Simulated scan of single mutants.
Amino acid sequence: MLAGKTVVISGATGMIGAFLIDVLMRKNSTEGLSCKVVALGRSAVKAKARLPYFGRDHFSFEEGLVTASGYRPVAPADYVLHLASSTHPRQYATDPIGTIRANVDGLQNLLEYSAGCGARLLFASSVEVYGQNRGDVERFTEGYCGNIDCNTLRACYNESKRLGEAMCQAYRSQRGVESVIARIARVYGPTLLPDDSKALSQFMHHSLAGEDVVLKSEGTQRFSYLHVADAVSGLLHVLLLGADGEAYNLADEGSDVALKDLAALVAEVGQVKVVFDLPDAQEAAGYSKATLALMDGSKAKGLGWIACYGIADGIRATMEQMSQAG
């Protein structure tokens, strides 16, 4: 379905965007897909360090701020994936305005662009739209309405994701834009960035450096995680096969885990210990208050999507790849 098509990807140097581009360029190389990849990002220098495709056929990079007023990619596209977003606690705490703008202004620009060229758009949303489990369900289905305190600094992320979803519906109705929504579990994998302040990222960086894994709570929270390879596979299923206007959870029961068990797994792989330490005020301001956030991924699996990594295998594979990369 992507053969000979043009795909525009915002957030091209992020953990998911970079992996997705790797997949598409690999398919171009090995299977003659001839899919033109247009990567959007703020820095060509950063993109060249992250994406080794400059100068190759079927790849182009457009430097610019997707949130800038009136921003539009240059060439028309068949598919658009809006992946650009702040994705970790320190960003939420230090740049809440930028977090909101990526999920709202950036999305509006790409929805306008999609309306103009007839592209189908995928908005990368998040498990965070559900907020805290009220105790009335074990897992979040796509129809769960959520429980979020909007009057907090931390709400910059989950409320702007919720607004982004509503914007997709508005542009479907008023401008005829085909759009689908992927609500993604907590993602990890070898393309995570060194400055990522999410708990699992910090666990792995400490462990690989021979340092103890620092747990900044009792670790009783239970969350759904997803290896980046499975996230990208899920995004492609939703983009190409998802019903127009529908939202799909990308999560798998094999990657549900309590935070303390996750820390122990990472520590075991790195042969270090788990220690407990409370976060500073700035860091704590960016943390989710959710203690139970498990997702039901059966709707996406109905599209034929299958996750390949359980949490234990995924963590081991990720840390091995990160170690080899130095």
Rank of each mutant, 00 (worst) to 15 (best):
K48I: 00
Y71R: 01
S207I: 06
K273M: 11
L153F: 03
Y113S: 02
S34I: 01
S288E: 14
Q202T: 09
L121V: 07
Q108P: 01
V80D: 00
V37R: 08
W305H: 13
N249P: 05
S126V: 08
L200Q: 13
L193Y: 01
V272M: 06
S255W: 05
A243V: 12
F59N: 05
S34N: 07
S224R: 08
A170I: 13
S34H: 06
G131N: 04
M15K: 02
C145Q: 09
S34V: 01
L239G: 03
R139G: 02
D196C: 08
A155D: 11
N151G: 00
N28C: 04
A312N: 13
M167D: 00
L265C: 05
R316E: 10
E320G: 03
Q271S: 12
L278W: 00
G14S: 08
G245Y: 02
D95L: 02
I148T: 07
A12F: 14
L240T: 13
L235M: 15
R26A: 14
R101A: 14
C156N: 09
Q132L: 09
V23D: 10
A166T: 02
P279C: 12
A93E: 06
A18E: 04
P89A: 14
V274M: 01
A155P: 05
A281W: 03
D95Y: 07
Y53T: 08
L163C: 12
Y157N: 14
Q221H: 08
T220Q: 06
T30K: 06
G146V: 04
L121K: 00
Y188D: 09
K48T: 00
C168N: 06
A102F: 08
A312F: 15
P194R: 11
D149K: 09
V213G: 07
L65E: 15
I311C: 15
D212Y: 05
I315F: 09
V38G: 06
V8G: 01
L107E: 05
N103T: 06
T220I: 12
M25F: 13
R186W: 04
A77M: 03
V266L: 10
Y225I: 01
M1E: 03
A18H: 08
G286I: 06
G32W: 03
